[in-house]
Computed example of a mutant assay.
Amino acid sequence: MAAPQQYNWHKIAESAEDFFWQENQLCELQVKGKTICIARNGDQVFACAHKCPHAGGHMAAGFVDALGNIVCPLHRYRFSLQNGRNVSGEGYYLKTYPVEIREDGVYIGLEESRLFGLF
């Protein structure tokens, strides 16, 4: 049985209103050397890889559809913001990151790096 995923939490904003949202309710930011796409759907904030796994389109140039999926601007592949599943049927997976809105700010969880067999 796999161990539960461990995250290092990083504060990325004081509130959801502090992001530089584009009209499409998407933006990109740097967190610990990673470029992350941030998406807003209603009052929820999501985080995912900034490039589409199919052809590398910048997800922040796409849009969030009426069902809450992020849509790549290049070929219109659709991905669930909640789990990264490709909902348009092409079989790709978009990396997602957990986001928590806490009293003191907005946080993103990045996986703890684990080094096996190096010591």
Rank of each mutant, 00 (worst) to 15 (best):
M1Q: 09
M1G: 15
M1Y: 07
M1N: 12
A2S: 13
P4C: 00
Q5H: 04
Q6M: 04
Y7I: 07
N8S: 13
W9H: 10
H10E: 09
K11F: 03
K11L: 04
A13T: 03
S15A: 08
S15W: 05
A16T: 01
E17M: 02
E17D: 13
D18P: 00
D18F: 04
F19N: 05
F19C: 03
F20N: 10
F20T: 06
W21S: 05
E23P: 10
E23G: 06
N24P: 07
Q25R: 08
L26P: 02
E28F: 05
L29A: 03
V31R: 00
T35Y: 04
I36S: 04
I36R: 03
I36C: 03
I38D: 02
R40N: 02
G42S: 08
G42R: 00
D43K: 08
D43M: 07
F46Q: 02
A47N: 10
C48S: 15
H50D: 03
K51H: 11
P53Q: 11
P53N: 08
G56E: 02
G57N: 07
G57W: 06
G57A: 12
M59K: 08
M59N: 01
A61W: 10
G62N: 03
F63P: 01
V64E: 11
D65C: 04
A66D: 15
L67H: 11
L67N: 14
G68P: 08
G68V: 02
N69W: 04
N69E: 15
N69Q: 14
I70R: 11
C72R: 06
P73Q: 13
L74I: 12
L74A: 14
L74M: 11
L74W: 03
H75S: 12
R76C: 07
Y77G: 12
R78S: 09
S80R: 10
N83C: 09
G89K: 09
G89D: 01
E90N: 07
G91A: 01
Y93A: 15
K95D: 14
Y97I: 05
P98Y: 00
V99E: 01
E100N: 09
E100A: 11
I101H: 08
R102D: 12
D104W: 03
G105F: 00
Y107P: 05
Y107I: 03
I108L: 10
I108D: 13
L110P: 07
L110S: 09
S113E: 09
L115A: 13
G117P: 00
L118T: 08
F119P: 07
